[in-house]
Amino acid sequence: MKMLQLNDIYKNFDGNVVYSGFSLEIREGVTTGILGPSGCGKTTLLNMLGGVLKPDKGEISGVDGKTFSYIFQEPRLLPWKTVRQNIEFVLEKYYAKDSRDRIAEICDFYLQLVDLHGFADYYPSQLSGGMSQRVSVARAFAVPSDIILMDEPFGGIDINLKKNIIEKFLKICENDRRTVVHVTHDVDEALAMSDDIFVLSKSPVKVVFEKKNIKKENLTTLKDAVIGNL
C-alpha cells in the first residue's frame, strides 16, 4: 500500500517547538482522521503536507507531483462570484480554454452530489452557511486532486446540517476514492468519516493513539479510547 510519509519532522514558530522528531504514515486512498487538542499544530501539519509550508528539518515523501484540494474551516468562496464561477476559478488551470462545456459539466456533476444543482447561479450571500460549506466540498472534489486536505471543515455548522454534509461526503467517497486527510477536534465527526485515525498530543506533537480500519471496530469502545487519549 502506498503511503504519504512524514519523517523526523522539526518545525518551530517564533521559538515555540511545534514538531520535534515527528513521524507519521498516512495511507493513500482512504480517509485519515487526525484528532488533537486545539492549537496543537494540526493546521501546520496540513500545510506541510500540502507544500505551502516547509518543515525546518525532516522530509515528506509521497506528495511530489500530487495535486491538492482544501476544505477550510470557513467556505472561503469569492463573494462576487456565483457558485459556478467559484468552482470554475479553481478548475481553470486544469482545463484548456476551449473546454468550457467540460468545466460546466464537472460543476454540475459535483453540485448535484452535494444537492445544490439548482444553485449554480446563486451568489454566496444568498446561501446559508451549510450550503456554502457544501459548495466548498463540491469545489474540493471538482478539482482532479489526488489528496484532499480538510481543516476542521464542519466546525461552525449545527449538528443536523453537519450530519447531512458528512452523509454527502461519504456518498461521494464511495465512488471517488481519494486520499483524504481530515483534521478535527470533534471525535464523532472523525469516527463517522475516517478509515484510519490518529490522536495527537499538545506540542511538541506526538502520536498518542492510532487505529487503522476503524469501520470494523466497535465504535463505543473506540470512542472511549480516543477520548481517554485526547
Binding site: 505551502v52 495535486t67 482544501y70 477550510f72 470557513e74 472561503r76 476559478f89 479553481v90
Partner: peptide, 21 residues
C-alpha cells in the same frame, strides 16, 4: 487574506488571482 490563501493553496495562477480576487 483567507481568500488569497485559498487561491494559493489551490495553486490558481497569479494573473487569475489578481483579476478575480
Amino acid at each position: 487574506v483567507k481568500l488569497i490563501e485559498m487561491a494559493r493553496f489551490y495553486k490558481v495562477r497569479r494573473r487569475s488571482v489578481i483579476r478575480n480576487v
